[in-house]
Structure formats: structure tokens, C-alpha cells
Design a binder for these strands. Structure first.
Length: 261
DNA sequence: ATGGTAGCCTCGCTA
């Protein structure tokens, strides 16, 4: 089974790019982030034409997450618990049946950017990650194959960026940010990419500005976190880097996991 | 030290 995550930076602007990639990569499940549209505006018909069901938690202009899947989604949850007063669409979760008669629970996550540090935006980021932490702990207690994937807006280590000094003042690389992310991992979740690949400087995002792609000045912020039951089945995890060089690309590229479930 | 780009749907905000 192939499961992927991709921050598409507007699903409408990226419709051709996403369609082309789906036909080539043929994932069973794809988590999308930053769809930047409402549920009503989501182009479900196009994805249905390509053989995918879609569930989404959309929002006008900003944020928004979705899950595309060859099999229909069950037990869909939109938004994290304890999200009173939070109108950002950043979380959707669903359960899918597998070919072998099992299930896998998958969440599409778009954590807040939080820039600049020292503002209420940064506080919101840290509080959001703590809410995700508490929800992840509850999900782990189910002892199921579980994949919490998406744009965490966290650079986990200095090996996950071109130049740590360039990111020192950024919300994505603050010690508090990295600690909050580490606490989620330390609940017992595995970073699928790092479980398969130790080499440094493998990125999932390159800014549109300042020739970041040409110079390979990227960061690794799109992560697939696996429960022990999912990690047992992990065969490989790859970053689909070449997609960043396509026409009209997202600033993020897909991350893909192959699981024997 | 600054500015560089993209998407939204209004000329500013978010990333």
C-alpha cells in the first residue's frame, strides 16, 4: 500500500500537477494540505474521474486539508479536539480498509507556520502542536496502524536544512518548536523518512523566492509519523523531489511511504 | 541588510 502526503499550495491552482502526479505515482491514499478552498470549492469530481474518493476540511483562501483515497474513508474526524474558538482548518482524520482485511488510520495535518517568533502566532503554533500531541497519545492507545502525516512546519534537526544559521530566527527551527515536535515523536511515533534514510539535507520544501530550488536551499518539514503497528510494516519512504522542477509547482513536494499492509 | 515569488480574490495577507 502506498500512502503519501503533499502540501499542494492551492488544490485549484495545482489541479493539473496533482492529476499528473496521481497517474504516475498511483498512491492508494494521499493527504493534501493548504488546499486553500472551501469544501464546496474542492474539485472532487476531477479526482473521482481519476479513481479517488475525497474527504476534506476546507476553508476560504487559507489552510484546508483533504484525503484522497482509492477506497472510501470511514469514521472521518474534522479538526482536533479542544479546538474551541479555532477556525483554522488544519486537521482531518479517517480510517481505511486494506487489501489484507485490516485497517489503517490516516490523518492529514497542516500545523501553523508561527512566524515570527515571540508573537501570538508563535504561541498559537506551540499550543496547536500540544493539542496534536494529546490527540496523538489517544490514537496511539488504540494500538492500530496509524499515520499522522503532513506539513508540520518543523525542521527537526540541523541536518534537515541547508544552512542552520539561516533558519536560526525562524519559527520552524526554534528550540521550543523542535521540542514540541520531538515530544510528539517520543510518544512512540517513527519518522518514516528517517527510519529508511540517514543521509542529511533531503528536503521537502524550497521557497519560491531567492532561487532556493536552483541552489537546493530547502528544508524538510513534511513528515510521515508512524505508530509502532504501522512502522512494523514500513518498506520504504521516499521524497518525490523531481516534482519541484515541474511547470507551476507547489513549493512542497510529495512524500511517499510503501507499507506491507 | 534586503528582497526575492506565489496564491488568494482585494490591492493586503499568508507563506
Amino acid at each position: 500500500m502506498k500512502i503519501a502526503t503533499w502540501n499542494v499550495n492551492s488544490v485549484k491552482a495545482r489541479l493539473d500537477t496533482v492529476s499528473t502526479w496521481l497517474a504516475q505515482a498511483a498512491p492508494d491514499i494521499v493527504c493534501l494540505q493548504e488546499i486553500k478552498t472551501t469544501d464546496e470549492g474542492f474539485p472532487s469530481d476531477v479526482f473521482e474521474g481519476l479513481g479517488y474518493n475525497a474527504v476534506m476540511h476546507g476553508q476560504k483562501s487559507y489552510n484546508g486539508v483533504a484525503i484522497l483515497s482509492k477506497r472510501p474513508a470511514e469514521d472521518v474526524v474534522k479538526g482536533l479536539p479542544e479546538s474551541d474558538g479555532d477556525d483554522h482548518a488544519r486537521y482531518i482524520e479517517a480510517v481505511f480498509s486494506t487489501d489484507k482485511g485490516g485497517i489503517v488510520r490516516v490523518a492529514s495535518i497542516y500545523a501553523p507556520n508561527g512566524n515570527p517568533p515571540g508573537t501570538e502566532r508563535f504561541d498559537y503554533k506551540l499550543a496547536w502542536l500540544e493539542r496534536l500531541n494529546r490527540h496523538a497519545a489517544r490514537l496511539l492507545a488504540l494500538e492500530e496502524p496509524l499515520i499522522l502525516c503532513g506539513d508540520y512546519n518543523v525542521i527537526p534537526t540541523a541536518d534537515d536544512c541547508h544552512d542552520p544559521k539561516a533558519w536560526a530566527g525562524d519559527a520552524l527551527f526554534q528550540p521550543e518548536t523542535r521540542a514540541a515536535y520531538r515530544r510528539i515523536c517520543n510518544l512512540g511515533l517513527s519518522d518514516a523518512f528517517r527510519a529508511c534514510h540517514a543521509e542529511p539535507r533531503r528536503y521537502t520544501f524550497w521557497d519560491y523566492q531567492a532561487g532556493s530550488w536552483t541552489k537546493d536551499h530547502g528544508i524538510r518539514i513534511d513528515h510521515m509519523l508512524l505508530s509502532p503497528q504501522a512502522a512494523d510494516c514500513l518498506l520504504d519512504c521516499v521524497i518525490d523531489r523531481h516534482v519541484r522542477g515541474w511547470e507551476k509547482p507547489s513549493d512542497h513536494v510529495p512524500v511517499l511511504c510503501q507499507l506491507s499492509i
